[in-house]
Design a protein around this nucleic acid. Structure first.
Lengths: 215, 215, 215, 215
DNA sequence: CATGAATGAGGATTCATTCAT
DNA sequence: GATGAATGAATCCTCATTCAT
């Protein structure tokens, strides 16, 4: 149907692009549904309707529902990691952390959703494959963080000894985890109280955040 | 066969005791199944089998599956609250916090399970009734904590100003929440690293823990 | 435990009386529940509670739920028959017929309930045993009626030829059946309209009802 | 594969037609099962098997079992009404009435089934929504009948005064109801006896049926 | 590619019936 | 006799998945 050679390659890649777009469409819909209803209560039919496609079509792009859950989890993990990698200062950290709490979980573009975080974490206690993937990513994130903390100040780091840096990185992760859980449980928490609590911990962990007067 | 009056009262209470025992049996089985599979994936049939009874019998003691979930959540919340109330010193706190992380979640007697914590929290983003109950308890816990932190040292407290006490209480809650999530995601975390991370935060939040050399 | 002979007979009969009383208690409760919910939707547990006894005990007096339904049907049929037998004049008939419509079906003492009539009739199209029993009784009732209609006026009858009497008896039965169905479907029907409709038919079937001025 | 526009409209209507066909298939199967076993004793599984489809599929066309019961009831009511509306003479009436009695209730095409009539009527004493719908239709039917009876003879009516027409309409309805109940209870009733009984009543209600010699 | 009708296993729940006490 | 806890089959309904079109 199409000429061989270059053309064919173009076709293939066009098909590939379309495939990726479809997958994204499905994942976005699935995200929305999972946040709203949870992994298990969200039905394929609902996801299909949300994605404005037929249920059958989803199975052309994902083997089954579990594969979608996996993909969602993977993307959440990647987002988390990329955010951590983007961090270069204590101010970044503080801002990013508060931002976690403020983001609207029902916003389909919010890619680091608290309900999803909880769902994923809970699921990891049951599904070994999910557990492994999560562990892999979380470890990477912690290493990345520790690396940053242990780099010299000249290199944009905080100059902690390696051992201490590892502990501090863990402390930061605990803080972020706690914020996500707290957000799900008490979404209306007083922000200024929260801000101060977070700052107390961050200050203890990586030192005072300079110039953080008014937001 | 039995004299009326006193004996009769004994009979009644025997029935009541049995009822409570059965409820406990069901709740223990449900806990086990929920931890293992999650609220929704755990079936009544499985719970019944775990409790070594017929599915129908469960419904003599609980109106429906949701009532079981509620009862489990309520008991988890009560446990959390009672633990907080029992706390009277920084050492208590440190010990309790580490203990959270160490407890075996598959132990049916471990009544403050990390998977359950996550499941509950996730569920609270969907079920308004669960959300309300959780919020109620969490608030109570935080008030209790803040109260302790703001009491004078003579009264066993830490003498924080009320406002600060509230922030520090929140910081502690964040820490505990973070530990639960972390436990689910990385159960094999290095304990001494964790211990130091926790201590860093606790120290920042409520001051140094005296005499906490080696465990 | 008891002396032989006369005494024993006394015991037995006392037991027998008790048995009959218990059966009556169960049947009364069952009636109440059947009227309210229908044969199938009424549960043994509800009947037991209504009868203020345990579910298990019912099975001492009736083999199973079906046996209760049978007994209820049989008693309804007997009531219908006895009412017909008691009829000795056109005035009786008119009064009895209107009374059918007025009686409160939720009154546990109303022993000729419209819902039950419908339930029974419907059931007879499925259960051959019930069908047979109903047919037997209905035929008896019609014969009784026809007999009355064909008796000479000296004997309190209406003097119809046998053949005609049979047809007229059937017409009366149709009227009564219709009233029961109508009552279930339109309980609030205008009584004076109904009264006139009934009288039109009765008059046609057995002649004018003398002296039926005001009720 | 197909041109857009007109073709598409054809596609849509094809789907709609199929949907209506499926609904009909389900309703026919349900009718059969309800007649045979009653609304409550007929299971969805049996209906599905009768309709030669899977249980799950039924739920694509009806929200739940109750919706099916409703649809059946509604169609029965409509049939009853349309029959009444079609009546234009005493001969029509007589014929229609006898026909009610003769139709085979197990014939899936018999759309005015006596068992269903009883089941519906019984159900109306419990379910308020069903009761309302039945009452609405029954009232409409009676008004239609009364209207016919009160029209002048020139207009095809019988010229009764309005008040009398209402009573006579009710009398006719009573007769029809009675016939349905009687049919369920004594399907083998002697037809000529029945015919005479019916004629006695009809004659009384709307006057002699001219020319109704032999059938 | 895409649809959405169809399947059927599985889940929560009810209830007639039994039986140890 | 009497209780009511216990059973488990049966019911309604959902939903992941498949497949003819």
């Amino acid at each position: 149907m199409s000429a061989p050679g270059v053309e064919n390659r173009g076709d293939l890649s066009k098909a590939e692009i379309r495939k990726q777009l479809q997958r994204k469409r499905i994942l976005a819909a699935a995200m929305y549904c999972f946040v709203k209803r949870g992994f298990h209560a969200a039905s394929m039919a609902t996801i299909a309707k949300t994605a404005k496609m037929s249920p059958g079509l989803i199975y052309r792009y994902f083997d089954n529902k579990n594969a979608i859950i996996f993909a969602i989890i993977a993307s959440q993990l990647e987002i988390a990691e990329s955010r951590v990698c983007a961090m270069r200062s204590a101010r970044d950290l503080n801002a990013a952390i508060i931002e976690y709490f403020m983001a609207d979980d029902n916003d389909p573009d919010n890619t680091a959703s608290a309900p999803l975080f909880l769902e994923m974490s809970a699921e990891s206690t049951r599904d070994p494959e999910i557990a492994r993937e999560i562990r892999r990513m979380d470890t990477a994130v912690r290493i990345e963080l520790a690396d940053w903390l242990s780099r010299s100040r000249d290199e944009g780091g905080l100059g902690f000894p390696v051992e201490v840096a590892r502990e501090r990185a863990l402390a930061l992760v605990l803080l972020v985890d706690g914020l996500k859980a707290r957000k799900a449980r008490e979404p209306g928490l007083d922000i200024s109280c929260l801000r101060n609590a977070v700052e107390t911990i961050i200050t203890a962990v990586i030192g005072p955040i300079e110039g953080d007067g008014v937001d």
